[in-house]
Amino acid sequence: MVQAKVVDENTQVFENVVCPFCATLCDDITVQVKDNKVSKVNGCNLCKGVFLHAHEDWTKPMIDGKEVTYDLAVEEAAQLLARANNPLIYGLAATDVDAQKKCVELADLIGANLDNASSV
């Protein structure tokens, strides 16, 4: 991994960053991070949208709209899927290969339908 340059105590600069927005996958982005928020980024508008808002609206583990522990959310998911008759796993296009591999493994285990954005 490329090491970030430390500007001051709270600010780091990352170079040659890959932009996870569109499949152009530009890999020459410079990202400045201050207090775990992106404070500056030199990509296109779509890229800026990804990084500058990346610290906002984070999810929390929830069941039925109520916050729960992480373990409980995962357990609930496992229980639902263990009992499912015809589950669907969908998405995959906006995450990395490791997660995609695990999605196929899960689908294989539970006899699911598995689809990504190619079909839409």
Binding site: A54, K60, I63, A73, A77, T95, V97
Partner: peptide, 17 residues
Amino acid sequence: KVIIPVKHAGVSVEGTA
């Protein structure tokens, strides 16, 4: 029904695309 928070690939975690 269930939300499982995860790291944001390419933002808060490394990964291959």
